[in-house]
Write a protein that binds this DNA or RNA. Sequence first.
DNA 1: CTTCTTTCATTGACAGCGGAAAAGAACCCA
DNA 2: TGGGTTCTTTTCCGCTGTCAATGAAAGAAG
Lengths: 391, 391
Amino acid sequence: MRSTPRTEAVPVPTPAASLVFTTVLSHGPLTRTGIARRTALSSAAVTKAVRPLMEAGYLVEGVDEESRPALGRPANPLRVDGGRALFIGVKVTGDEIIAVLADLCCRIRVARHLPLTARDPGAVLASITGLVQELLTEADGFGVEVRGVGLAVSGDVDRGAGVVRYSPFLDWRDVPLAELAGTVTGLPVTVDNDVRALTVAEQWFGAGAGISDFALVTVGAGIGCGLVVHGRVVSGAHGVAGEIGHLSIDPLGPPCHCGNTGCVEAIAGDAAIIRRVREVTGLPVTGSDQALDLAHRGDPGAREVYARAGEAIGRAIGAVVNVLGPQRVIISGEGLAAYDLFAEHIRDAFTASAFGTAAQCDVMTRPLPFEEWARGAAATAIQSFIGTDTQ
Amino acid sequence: MRSTPRTEAVPVPTPAASLVFTTVLSHGPLTRTGIARRTALSSAAVTKAVRPLMEAGYLVEGVDEESRPALGRPANPLRVDGGRALFIGVKVTGDEIIAVLADLCCRIRVARHLPLTARDPGAVLASITGLVQELLTEADGFGVEVRGVGLAVSGDVDRGAGVVRYSPFLDWRDVPLAELAGTVTGLPVTVDNDVRALTVAEQWFGAGAGISDFALVTVGAGIGCGLVVHGRVVSGAHGVAGEIGHLSIDPLGPPCHCGNTGCVEAIAGDAAIIRRVREVTGLPVTGSDQALDLAHRGDPGAREVYARAGEAIGRAIGAVVNVLGPQRVIISGEGLAAYDLFAEHIRDAFTASAFGTAAQCDVMTRPLPFEEWARGAAATAIQSFIGTDTQ
DNA sequence: CTTCTTTCATTGACAGCGGAAAAGAACCCA
DNA sequence: TGGGTTCTTTTCCGCTGTCAATGAAAGAAG
């Protein structure tokens, strides 16, 4: 389909240029001197790195007329022209595919859903391709080319090889997804674990921008965690990292599907909460919204379930903080809808379990729109496009 | 004391030279081509980097006559001349100072002890200085100069600033130890947290050589953990990392001095084990050796205490592995004397709590001679001497 | 005993990155 | 119009690491 003319790459041949570009990307409009300060490069080096990027249209000079210091030559802030390139991000879940068209600044332009009927690689690939085609058509409307596709899949994903090693939800093993999708779409494809993809988005375009050590905790069906250490996303030697959902925090807790007892996920995962609310209240609760509603209306049993869940999450965060000492923890995820029920208990449990100065860690929350996962996938595509070696 | 003539630094001006030197340091004798392969440098670059290092005597050509491939020009393996420089490593505990004289390959030449009577910075500094002087005298016997001092202190240590921010055992706050010791000894001083120092030794000269992601777990009075992620030692944004001793793994467990309950240290730390053995057996056990002896002689109560301790350690390791997915975990520490009592339970608990492929992590043990902590301090001094920015 | 092959090591030319310093540019203010 | 200030660019230069060719040291082959 669509013979991609292997368009010219973004001109970031030198490490300095790459550094400059990612700096502007993450830190909004920045003057050349500002870039030099931030990157510890000489201003001459910045000038030289910026020129080809401007000529190619990736950087533009904002005519930002306010906030002038009123003395000396006025600064020429640079920013990335988001509209210069488009990317497609796709999140594959067990029963749905979400795809977004995002610009170079990872702002979402268009979002699409598609229910997933079959889970075998062929069927999923077909669905992905369909959505990608739709978005490519949309992209034509913007008159800008799509320069890459990112695919986010939960489970053990080898980004470098572009292979999904094992995905429990899809029941896949060793699927060379990047290659498959690449030949079908004719675009460069990046495949990564979903939580890591979200972490990349946060690192470049979100609350992790400019922070070298942080953790992103996702609360929802599962409890996950993406980690950035020394400015790089942690993948783990065996492709698994940030598995805080299966930290066992209570030997006497409920059994988990992983075979252990008292896992965070077995206490604070969506399914666990629903089951427990049902048990406690005796009501035929089947969905998160019902459980949530019950708790919001003041049902003490339901509230207690959420309190325990919050405590479990807080202790898991405490564990991460004690082990890694990150500067910040970002809590996000679909489960954030219940944050008002959680919040206090998360904070209390975290404070109690964090040791020493590690407790100074800044714990914050961020809402997670449903397309956010797909946006994470787009962020990985942008990362690959720029060619930074994951910093 | 002793006016150090600020001797010429090791000639590693360029990143390539530094890379070459550390590669040879960690990976034993290596031919130039081997270095080029390992470092992804061109052979020309290796040649150029090696020359000044050989001229300065830091690298020597081993006349390694065996294991020749019998075809082509024979290789000239290079190795670091350990005897070319000496370093002093000092570990400061609450009641003792251990110092070693180590060579450039971090082999211990001389080791010394000194009981500590007072814990105020002045007294400790005096003791350190005394030991350092002794070792400097010893060093004269080798005819080689001492090129740096490393100090290892438990607690929150800012290596970059050379300041001990907070050490509970010494009851220090914000002591600029590097500066103090530097002016007194006239040598470059590196100050670091003790567990991190041990981790550095392991990373450069031990079971962590060549591994980019590993954890070092120390079992003894406390339960500590040093982490290497992306080839760099993790310090934590607030100076605290690897605090697995205060992971709370059992809400109903014994209280811990940190205010929490069921901390690993409150179950598997030396003091906790002794107390618990006393409670269980009713015998007036006061030392680790007595408790150990009791368990080794088959006392079921004591054995059970060690079993629980092993389980706690195993679960803590499981937590680290789930969060970081390291390639290897090295267990060490004074508590390793009880390893036969622990081992099985550590392994079982680890296996049970490790999730997915993270369980593939290689868990190994290493004996820890009493001077090892001081050797770690020496390793940090060597690191500073070479001037690698902690990789 | 020479000549080949193979592998290891070195040399010299070279591209090009990034830094230092100085000059240029744009603005305000007197 | 000329200073003062700050941002940006230019010019030159050192220096690093690569390329490709050459040299070196063996055993194998004729």
